[in-house]
Design a protein around this nucleic acid. Sequence first.
DNA 1: CGTTAATCGGACCATGTGGTCACCTTAGGT
DNA 2: ACCTAAGGTGACCACATGGTCCGATTAACG
Lengths: 217, 217
Amino acid sequence: MTRTTPPVPSRSDAVRNRRLLLDAASRAFAEHGVEVSIGEIAQWAGVGKGTVFRHFSSKADLLAAIMLGMLDELEGTATALLEADDPGGALRDFMAAGVEIFVRDRAFCEVVGRPSLQSEQVREAIHRLGDVAERLTSRARDQGAVRPDVTGTDVVLLLSGIQHTAAPLLVTEPLAWRRYLELALDGITAGDRRPLPYPPPRRLPLTSPDPDPDRDR
Amino acid sequence: MTRTTPPVPSRSDAVRNRRLLLDAASRAFAEHGVEVSIGEIAQWAGVGKGTVFRHFSSKADLLAAIMLGMLDELEGTATALLEADDPGGALRDFMAAGVEIFVRDRAFCEVVGRPSLQSEQVREAIHRLGDVAERLTSRARDQGAVRPDVTGTDVVLLLSGIQHTAAPLLVTEPLAWRRYLELALDGITAGDRRPLPYPPPRRLPLTSPDPDPDRDR
DNA sequence: CGTTAATCGGACCATGTGGTCACCTTAGGT
DNA sequence: ACCTAAGGTGACCACATGGTCCGATTAACG
């Protein structure tokens, strides 16, 4: 049974350290992925290792806090775009925002791509994001900007796919993802094409998705 | 200085164990990714841990041996497809074969996606694969099956992207990748579209590509 | 057979990790 | 100024992993 994470503290030094920790961890996870050690994060933040565990009950907990923040932010962007005049453009903007987060944050890619790293809350956040994406997509579909057999689930899945397509070029061409975003957009644009095979599930299989391939280790 | 890997042995038991080891490692890497421990692989193969290091000087070496095998096989398929009558179909077949390998093998995805895991030989093999893909693509382009601004590099990169798009569905819909392969194909098919932004490098940046984000740990 | 060199295997080592804890420091109310 | 509880910390623990090594085993040849 994992101890639960303490609430946001009140003492000034604690508040400050929590902030430092969150910032350091964000950068560390973004740059090096989920594998960075707690020790390094503590060092980056300029605090002792023990302090990390005073603020977050486990490494997974710290990671979840940060991932939740990013997911919520993206959901906010998506929700705002629901009000846009041009549904096609809104969908494109959402996808651009999404891919950009993936590109910027290595841990984000890893967490989204491996359910065993997702806390319940993270799963719920991804699910909510999927719902908004669905509405965004359906608007674009109704307007005729997107082919009829493409769903919001497709769109969300494509985010990760696009980033991984461009990943090997990250160092030499940090903006190459735009090229592949365009390619994907050309793929989902309406036109006379054979319908896609293998219809995707209505929603991401996120609630209890995986006989995780790591469990038996 | 790493000790170099011994040549294929001659004694019957050694040959057998080497085979057993290669098989076990293939399956282990495919299913669990590069993180499986040598100990587990040895157990799966039914040999002692020491035996692993007698046959392969390091874990990286064992991994490289297996990855090389897969890359060579894919290159063979691609080369054979160069002779096909229908260039467009050949390209599609190549992509299908490629994505299928990615889908089947977790370690393959990881190695291709993280240059720090690639040995010199693996990098060369990937490079050779890129060359064949380039020729495959250029044939399809000349025939008008593929838009003029798509290169072989794009095609290779898309392989990984497609697999990652479908990854979250692997358990529920193991064949979902076909849907996203089709989507990608629709994206690279000729048609009147604005040219893609951010032209890709002529070749994959594989020779010495990355200030690897793990090196400073 | 008997010899011998190749092979096997598991105890062993160095290293790195997440997480704990008992002790010291300090913020902040009085 | 003082008291106290919240907060900070780094030595410490348990555990896992890649890799080494040397005594025991065995294939293969004469």
